[in-house]
Write a protein that binds this DNA or RNA. Structure first.
Lengths: 212, 212
DNA sequence: CCATTGAATTTGACAGTGTAAATTTTCCAC
DNA sequence: GTGGAAAATTTACACTGTCAAATTCAATGG
């Protein structure tokens, strides 16, 4: 135990120590402090204390860096949903509304990160990538929470898509300022509960049924 | 009727004729042909046949140009919803589903334009602007179509938000490739109808009721 | 008819961006 | 130690948005 002060967990590598996670962390910090349009390869490099061309050895261009930052964002996002769901009882409707609350809490806590993650190009690459599992997108949490409403031999994607569509659209409207400026007393927005009441109509979905 | 070949409708102004609409049209064409990341002040200027600094006299920077292009996009978007609604009968549920179809048809016909319009920054500026009316966002069509489900003294925003959230979230999932590659036989995606069946639960919303 | 005026446009410049190649630094295996 | 490979830097280039100065051109007043 001598001078491993700069070697956190994985192997200390060569120069910087752990440049890749450092760049991702720098990117998240820039998103939080300065917003999406300030997220730049050169800025992340400067914040991590390396030259502007260093990131090229760890990411496939700026798109690769953005994808890695989004991946980290989805990790936080998933934990938000899990935390919210952990605070409610076993009622299936309550559990669905809980992950929706977690969803919106994340969106309002990290709006720029949220915007990056659900950028069409970024999420398209993750969704269609064969190496990114559903769990990396938090989609496994949604799936688990929706199972009580899916009949044994039915396709779960229907109920999942209903819930996911409603909550994502609502989050977009909220961040777009449709319900007025943000209010610390109501971080979910003024009509979260009544809007989500649409999900009270969910019942066990029988295969061949129309859906609600 | 001599040489007014370059003067379409309004006054020919000085140099170019009608540079502002020409730049907007160039931007829309670039979005359709090349995608959102190729939408550039200099590129629009080049396509309109003017120098790279000419747009500055007609728009407030690149953000102003993007806002103007988005405004034009919302005009097309609104017509898509009106056209779709014009093809169905008076049943309120059918009319709501019709504008949802128009919504998705627009998203799949103009994905890059759709992405620009619903960029958080762009739509936030339009939503919160005191000079941009709801009709400029197509929101009036949504409101009109939802009125059968709003009690006389109830706030219409609840039902509107339920419908808008569901369809916008679904459109995002569709463009994100969640349902596989695009299929010309099912441009709305493979589960549009069952997902939208959630809206069959809409009834006249009484004030004080929880929402669905 | 011509000079003047002023808006529209162009030109030139600058800082910032992503990316690529060549170069230097650093560490690990031998 | 020494060689080689990985990591990081330096340098360069094309492209972007923005600004200030110069230029062009249409309309107007004389």
């Amino acid at each position: 135990m001598s001078d491993l002060s700069r070697a956190p967990l994985t192997k200390p590598s060569h120069h910087h120590g752990n440049l890749r996670p450092a760049l991702i962390e720098a990117g998240v910090a820039i998103l939080i402090e300065d917003g999406l349009d300030k997220l730049t390869l050169r800025r992340c490099a400067a914040r991590a204390g390396v030259s502007h061309a260093a990131p090229a050895h760890h990411f496939d261009g700026v798109d690769g860096l953005r994808a890695a930052i989004a991946e980290e964002g989805f990790r936080i996002f998933r934990n938000y949903m899990l935390d919210a769901r952990g605070n409610v009882g076993p009622d299936p409707h309550e559990r669905i509304k809980a992950i929706c609350r977690g969803y919106i809490y994340f969106a309002t806590d990290f709006p720029a990160l949220f915007e990056l993650m659900f950028n069409i190009k970024v999420i398209y690459d993750m969704v269609t990538s064969p190496v990114v599992p559903d769990s990396a997108l938090g989609y496994d949490v949604l799936r688990d929470t929706c199972t009580p409403f899916v009949a044994p031999d039915a396709d779960p994607i229907l109920v999942e898509t209903q819930v996911w569509s409603l909550i994502h659209g609502y989050g977009t409207l909220l961040l777009a300022g449709r319900f007025g400026g943000s209010n610390p007393d109501a971080p979910l927005g003024p009509i979260f509960d009544p809007v989500m009441a649409l999900l009270d109509q969910l019942t066990v979905h029988q295969p061949g049924q129309t859906g609600a």
